[in-house]
Design a protein around this nucleic acid. Structure first.
Lengths: 204, 204
DNA sequence: TGTACATCAGTGAACGCGCGTTCACTGATGTAC
DNA sequence: TGTACATCAGTGAACGCGCGTTCACTGATGTAC
């Protein structure tokens, strides 16, 4: 059957959206092409006219999720949200319970580290701009250390959400989220005047 | 062939060790029984006299890794290592480059969250005692909040190592590790007197 | 305006392969006599 | 002490299944005349 103009692009977009959710829900290696296609209402044969390989799909899905995430953060910034708002938007129960629609770092990060270079580079690009946007919300935005501090805050957010998702008790999961919010705010807003004195002797 | 006494137990232990590395190196779902067995110098048929299923192996491997990790931390404590020492032992290049021998949370956490309940509970138990041991190293050890602070510090360590492993540039990875160390030390030792004032209006 | 044809998104069966799991079998050694 | 046998850890082929991928085919619609 022949379809109206733009149909193929729309299908492709639809596959991408289904895949984005599948990968985050089941993990990249556990999510299969046939499953994704049937979830998209298509048969597995229809996959290859749209994507060159599963790897290509992973890469595109990752890029698309990261772009979305970035867009959302920037939109929040535009409407006046501060870093605390960004942290609370990340570390909350809704995000905890919807991994398939949430941050890919929280669901896929160790698996991304095992992907081919091209995929890792796609991720890296998205990570970099996300962390930059986060850094721009820091009190000392633009300073030499704001970037690495933003990275640490993001690491804390990712780790916290992962841990909260791994525990089976919901109350405990929420405790972990709260502890993560507290710590992230401390990293974001506490005075950085106090520098460690002990580290020199150890890192030497 | 019949083997000397204790041979079966030794083989079982060997399979467990190989599996522990495989899971961390390749991920639980990407690591296969046949691969693990052949890496252990056996054929796939020899697996089932030792373990009931792959799931059982995952559970046992996880328990064994977590017990090891716990043992190592406690031994460090006994030889006078402080929290900073623990942080530096976790966030360094050796650990970065040897995921197969390192912390299972850094390699498997999102995947653990997708495992059956029994596996998740095994993990939870190990996590709880590891974080307790970490909490005991905090300046305010034993206080009401030391547990959740230790959890946040651990979350930061896990997230930092994962991010550092995902980036392709080693120098950048080390930057991330350093930023993580700094932030973890800040969470560990910075005065917690300053409480956030803004959060009330947001969490409400 | 009506008809014939080319297009091409999607179908569905098949490819080789590896998965987790099962099972009849092997054969060196410990044990019983 | 020497022989016959029971034991049982490990072998390796096979099970059904799903994987990623390929490909000959379908058939409704846009286009050309």
């Amino acid at each position: 059957m022949r379809f109206e103009k733009g149909h193929k692009a729309a299908t492709r977009q639809h596959i991408l959206e289904v895949a984005s959710k599948s990968f985050r829900r089941d993990g990249v290696s556990a999510a299969g092409i046939a499953g994704i296609m049937s979830e998209a209402g298509l048969t597995n044969g229809a996959f290859y006219p749209h994507f060159a390989s599963k790897e290509a799909l992973v890469r595109e899905a990752l890029a698309s999720i990261l772009a979305d995430q970035q867009r959302r953060l920037e939109e929040d910034q535009r409407t006046g949200m501060d870093l605390e708002g960004a942290i609370l938007r990340y570390l909350n129960r809704a995000h905890l319970e919807a991994p398939a629609c949430g941050c890919p770092s929280a669901t896929l990060l160790p698996e991304i580290a095992r992907q081919p270079l091209a995929t890792r580079q796609t991720y890296e690009e998205g990570l970099r701009s996300y962390v930059s946007a986060l850094a721009a919300l820091l009190p000392d935005a633009g300073s030499a250390t704001s970037g690495r501090r933003a990275m640490a805050i993001f690491a804390l957010m990712v780790g916290t959400l992962q841990l909260a998702r791994a525990v089976s008790n919901v109350a405990e999961a929420e405790q972990i989220l709260e502890g993560g919010v507290e710590a992230a705010l401390r990293l974001a807003y506490a005075p950085s005047t106090q520098r460690r004195q002990k580290s020199a002797k150890r890192t030497a």
